[in-house]
């Protein structure tokens, strides 16, 4: 069984595999959606997602990009 860490995704505690990065997390939880991701209150540019490996207790916010008003 692969090792897991606890993170917080949109306020909920969640177990994910050690070594998972932001891009993999997005594909796992928000595939086919146009989203932005904040990691520990910083919004990460999309091209940084594959480089950002999650650490235990990281707080991640995935939110949909919208254009209405």
């Amino acid at each position: 069984m692969s090792e897991k860490i606890d993170i917080y995704l949109n306020g909920d505690r969640l177990q994910v595999a050690v070594g998972i990065d932001l891009q993999q997390l997005q594909q796992q939880f928000a595939a086919d959606q146009q989203v932005a991701i904040a990691l520990n209150t910083e919004i990460m540019p999309r091209r940084c997602w594959p480089e950002r490996v999650l650490q235990a207790r990281d707080q991640v916010l995935i939110f949909n990009l919208v254009a209405g008003g």
Partner: peptide
Amino acid sequence: VQIYQHHQQQFSQCQLLAD
């Protein structure tokens, strides 16, 4: 950016990093 989270009824303020 101030992001609305409906279930928590709150906004989270996050710094926007430059690409």
